[in-house]
Amino acid sequence: MKTLKSMKPVILAICITVVSGTTALASSDHYHKIGFGNEPLHLYFWKDSSVASYGYTSYANTGFNAWDGISDALTFHEESSEPTYGSVVTYVGNTIPGKDVYGTVDHWVYGLFGWTQVNPDDRRHRSRVRFDHTNLSSLGSNALRQYAFTHEFGHAVGLKHNNDSGVASVMRDDSMVASNNMPQPIDKAHIIEKYGD
């Protein structure tokens, strides 16, 4: 009893350290708290047939692979059949009804009753990336189309928008800079910050 009482401050200190440490690792203005997780991760990339049908295969491949090799803790490979866990799946449609967007990313967990959509900050099993062909085709250049693809895959691997003033980033959504259509130094730094080197 006496021992337990004397251990209380130590236990409290350990709890505070763990909670603070977890919070410090988790929160950032530039990436989501958990997503697929912050530990070493292997993601499975899959393209629906619509990607090829609309002629975006190379954009999707380039955009997804752009995020490979930045962190040793984040690796990818492409699957020929639709994966479940740790998956990034891609579709293209003529339009995304109800929204005037180039692309959208949502996140899902797979449980007892199937797939449920989750908050981008929460644990996910899948990121689903969808593109609007009508809006993409109105973009002025292939470089800008590539920007859209790389940008959305950046969300899929856990990055948030980055509209910081004067910073070159493929995660900007207030403007699209064609020459920044691959992960920029700041984007790579955020990937390393989230997943480790």
Binding site: K99, D100, V101, Y102, G103, T104, V105, D106, V118, N119, P120, D121, N135, A148, H151, E152, H155, K160, H161, D173, D174, S175, M176
Partner: peptide
């Protein structure tokens, strides 16, 4: 409330 991550047309 949660966000959907999109790239709106600008």
């Amino acid at each position: 409330v949660a966000e959907i991550e999109t790239m709106p047309v600008t």
